[in-house]
Design a protein around this nucleic acid. Sequence first.
RNA 1: CGGGGAGUAGCGCAGUCCGGCAGCGCACAGCGUUUGGGACGCUGGGGUCGUAGGUUCGAAUCCUAUCUCCCCGACCA
Length: 592
Amino acid sequence: MRMSKLFFQTLREAPADAEIASHQLMLRAALVHPIAAGIFDYLPLGHRVKHKIEQIMREEMDAIGGQEVTLPIVHPAELWERSGRWSAIGDDMARLKDRNGRDYCLGMTHEEIMAELAQTVVSSYRQLPFVLYQIQTKFRDEPRPRAGTIRTREFTMKDAYSFDRDQAGLDAFYPRIYQAYFDIFRRCGLEVVAVESDTGMMGGSMAHEFMALTPVGEDTLLICDACGYSANRQIATFRKPAPPVAAPAPLAEVYTPNITTIATLADYLGIAQSETAKAVFMIAEISAENGAPREQFVFAVVRGDMEVNETKLANAVKARRLRPATTEEIRAVGAEPGYGSPVGIARAKVLLVVDDLVAATPNLVAGANRVDYHLRNVNSGRDYTPDLVADIVAAADGYACPKCGAALRSVRGVEVGNIFKLGTMYSEAMGATFLDENGQSKPIVMGSYGIGSGRMMACIIEHHHDELGIRWPITVAPYQVIIVDLGTEKTPEVTAVAERIYNDLRALGVEVLLDDRDERAGVKFNDADLLGIPLRLTVGGKGVKSGALELKLRRNGEVREIPLAQAAPAIQEIIEAEFALIRATLKPEPLA
RNA sequence: CGGGGAGUAGCGCAGUCCGGCAGCGCACAGCGUUUGGGACGCUGGGGUCGUAGGUUCGAAUCCUAUCUCCCCGACCA
């Protein structure tokens, strides 16, 4: 491609509303163009990168037996009503009506459509298993798009779905897609960690998220450097300290004027925060077996030095969602904000959930449900009886690893992919069943597996850039080589050499960009750096005279001399070596 | 949805307090000089000042409403 013909315009300054590096660089390098919050055009350079990433996904999915399909973006409401998600999902789903007033939505994901397809096509166990995938636009009306293409409303996703006759089949496939995902990310030059993730109310049995570690990430992960344990903070567990052993002491009220926080309480009484219990009030929306969901007041108790993990709490009480209770709601159950305690509340009105550590710890200080008073020596079982004892505490930096006990490290990451053992929830809802050898009708066991390509592109840039611009891995770069032609009207022989090498490279199938613009050297070098083309060949008077051209690697700044006469094959060889470096990063990733 | 910030040319910004010809830099077009790390000179094109009302002789500027975008949080199949 000649840069004089390329549709692009680099920016010297990034638009003011772009804050993170990848967003700024994607705009400055003319990869994307925003047209609304979380909605982007992909320009020729960005499109090429996105397409390469998707091609790698395609190859790896095909390699594990995936078959590519294209499902629609606009879905009839009826399919989503069958799974219950038409009403379960709120404003994140964009809905529309056709001319006849029928309801449709824009696809946020395709479990329903895939299951419907399986329902239609599959009737026998002989047709199973199989894997379908597509690379398709999704739309989720996110409340807050952010960070360029990391969180958008419209995005492209590679979503795959597996269909097995039983759980064993799914269990056998799962490690294969787990490995394929690592291979996809590594081929794109993106190092990720896989963490266990929440299966939530989807009814699945196992799920992993593939996280690109970066400070701009929106998820918090806990990682054990000693044994490799890693999990999303939403579900991360940890080894709780052993509770002290002591005989229950008599309950005693203590005057604590204006003490409403754990920190001031511990200070005031001269005790550790770990010797207190903290009450957290939530309202859970719980699906009833039949009929409308109901609201349930949830009274959660954790040790004072720990935080409630809302995901764990929601899972423990089987809530669809949780929200903080209002002051009025808290008083209505006999509790007092700031002085909350499980002792003496209107037990009939609340679901009392107590963290297992609190339940096992004697003589904690808790509120008295009365302004300015707390209680000493509160003991679970004696002073109150929990409805539920469960682990509802959020793991945090430095807590003990649940597997080996070493200190966990908390890091930020962006979820670039996820894999999920769905089970039979969707196949049952959509009637996707098959007959087994015995003529028994059974639901197909499904899994779903997604990767966002635009998000991945941004993460690759987050990992591969410097102050000058992007440093694309060779596998996903929009072009592999850029030739900087420094010839002028007075040195047509220089331009002639650049043109010759350009044609030689194209003939070899190399993806090459020729900077034939009437620009000064500095502009061309700076644009080459900004665009991040892995190899830069400079063709100028010096090189043409000496017969040795300068080839510079963008990823590390290394400069090599290559013979003018054999430039194209020499460059092709270097490109091959760059690919080999990426291939060398691939390795087995057994599922722990 | 709560909190904060911002809308003036493709991008970065000034002008707004205190109403009086819509500006600067980059980018873009033409000419000339230049030519191995973002050249210089001259000339030029491009803006309903987010939108709609209002006040005023006169509104980018004051008032009211509204829309959009960004950041933090909540939320996130």
